[in-house]
Amino acid sequence: MEPNSREEKRRIFRQELFTLREEGYLTKNIVEIVAKAHNQFHLDLIGEEAIQMPTEKKILINKKTDPPKPQKVKKTLSS
C-alpha cells in the first residue's frame, strides 16, 4: 500500500476515534487502548513491508536469469 494512502486512512481513523470520544460514545480509557492497538498495527504493517521488499527483489533477480539450455543429443548414423 502506498505510504500516503496508509497515512490518510490512519489519520481518518484517529479523527473518527477521537470524535466518538468527544461525543460521549467511547470512554477515554477505551480510546487510549484502541489508539495504541491501531498504532501498533501500523508499525507491524511497516515492519512486514520492510521484510517483504528484499524478498521481492530476489524474485525479480531470479526471473532475469536465462532458463537452462537443453542438452545436445549426438546423432548417430544409421546403416
Rank of each mutant, 00 (worst) to 15 (best):
K28Q: 05
K9W: 07
L20C: 04
Q71A: 10
Y25I: 03
S78Q: 09
E7A: 13
P67R: 14
N4V: 08
S78T: 12
R14H: 05
I51P: 00
E32F: 09
T19G: 06
K36M: 10
A50W: 04
E56Y: 11
R14E: 05
R14N: 06
P68M: 06
R21L: 03
T76G: 03
H38Y: 15
E23Q: 11
L45G: 05
A35R: 00
N39V: 13
E8Y: 04
I30C: 01
V31D: 03
T76F: 15
H42G: 04
Q40A: 12
T65P: 00
K57V: 13
N62Q: 13
E32H: 07
I59H: 01
E56R: 14
P70I: 11
K64N: 07
D44V: 12
E22D: 04
E7C: 07
E23L: 13
Q15D: 08
K9M: 10
K69Y: 03
G47P: 05
I59P: 07
Q15H: 06
P3K: 10
N4Y: 01
M1H: 12
V34I: 13
L17S: 02
N4A: 08
I51F: 14
E56V: 15
P70T: 10
H42E: 06
G47H: 11
N39E: 15
K72H: 04
